[in-house]
Amino acid sequence: MAGLVNKVYQSIFRRTSSFVLAAVAGAFMFERGFDMVSDGIFDNVNQGKLWKHIKQRYGQSLEEEE
């Protein structure tokens, strides 16, 4: 554990450049994952009620769309 922390510190956090890069990349990945999880919860709670769940029922127009 301590070795790992040290490794992370030495290779990422020690230099400002790599630290900023890690922060930006981390924010991007966190936000992506967070959105996927929360949207997944919402879609799951509302299974069958949202437009994207029912739109294939309506129509000929869909084939042209996709």
Binding site: N46, K49, L50, W51, I54
Partner: peptide, 16 residues
């Protein structure tokens, strides 16, 4: 209503 509840969306088939 189908949209009662903290996280419940509208029933879009009903909107239509």
């Amino acid at each position: 209503w189908p949209h009662d509840g903290l996280f419940s969306s509208f029933d879009h088939a009903s909107i239509r």
